[in-house]
């Protein structure tokens, strides 16, 4: 490995990294709340709401993300709906990850003891108030580890968007490998991915500590 060669790789890799981080951030911003909508739908007492949510989750968890990218980017224009490359990538990732987050939240909500719903009811809470003030706050600390896991997967899944011609970190590395016939760029890209997940892991550990502070006092 030659440091001055690595320095020449950096501008292109940094450009790719910017795209990767942009896609990552936009996906999280929209899919985290959207996931909750589908969670509430999938445990709703209104059958059509429940069905729609569960079918949505089934479709988006049940097909490859790559195929969904193809469908939204190349398939929708046949139905008169055309997106540019990057918006199509963001849309697909948001829809896909919302389905996974929905299931994580559902597991969290349903892990709360039934007795708490009953207790809330006897205290005169409406189902919505029960959710908002009792169930969801307790769910947060329980779902942080699996959500963290899923977002780390997201960092790596961003590499799939080259399928619809969006540049990102891995693509930038591939370009350099192709041009220079030298695989150093792959190693540098791997280190960059590791650095991102390292920072994320640290951040999630702090979040976990913060949200479980009340539980700790009890113990």
């Amino acid at each position: 490995m030659n440091l001055s060669y690595i320095a020449t790789l950096m501008p292109a890799l940094m450009q790719g990294l910017a795209q990767t981080l942009k896609l990552f951030a936009l996906t999280l911003i929209f899919s985290l709340p959207l996931g909750l909508v589908f969670t509430l739908g999938s445990i709703s007492r209104v059958p059509p709401l429940r069905w729609v949510s569960r079918i949505y989750i089934w479709i988006f968890r049940g097909t490859p993300l790559m195929l969904q990218l193809f469908f939204i980017y190349y398939g929708l224009p046949f139905m008169g709906l055309t997106f540019d490359r990057f918006p199509a990538a963001v849309l697909t990732f948001v829809l896909n990850y919302a389905a996974y987050f929905a299931e994580i939240y559902r597991a969290g909500i349903q892990s709360i003891d039934r007795g708490q719903h009953e207790a809330a009811k006897t205290l005169g809470f409406t189902p919505w108030q029960t959710m908002r003030y009792i169930i969801i706050p307790q769910t947060v600390s329980r779902v942080i580890p699996p959500v963290c896991n899923e977002t780390i997967t997201l960092v790596k899944d961003t590499a799939l968007v080259t399928a619809i011609g969006v540049g990102e970190l891995l693509k930038a590395a591939q370009g350099a490998v192709n041009r220079d016939v030298n695989i150093t760029a792959y190693a540098v890209a791997a280190l960059i991915y590791l650095a991102i997940t390292f920072v994320m892991t640290m951040a999630y550990e702090r979040l976990e500590r913060y949200f479980s502070r009340h539980q700790k006092k009890e113990g």
Binding site: F70, F71, Y73, F78
Partner: peptide, 8 residues
């Protein structure tokens, strides 16, 4: 619907 992109 998806057969168009999937198959091509």
């Amino acid at each position: 619907q998806s057969s168009a992109p999937a198959s091509s």
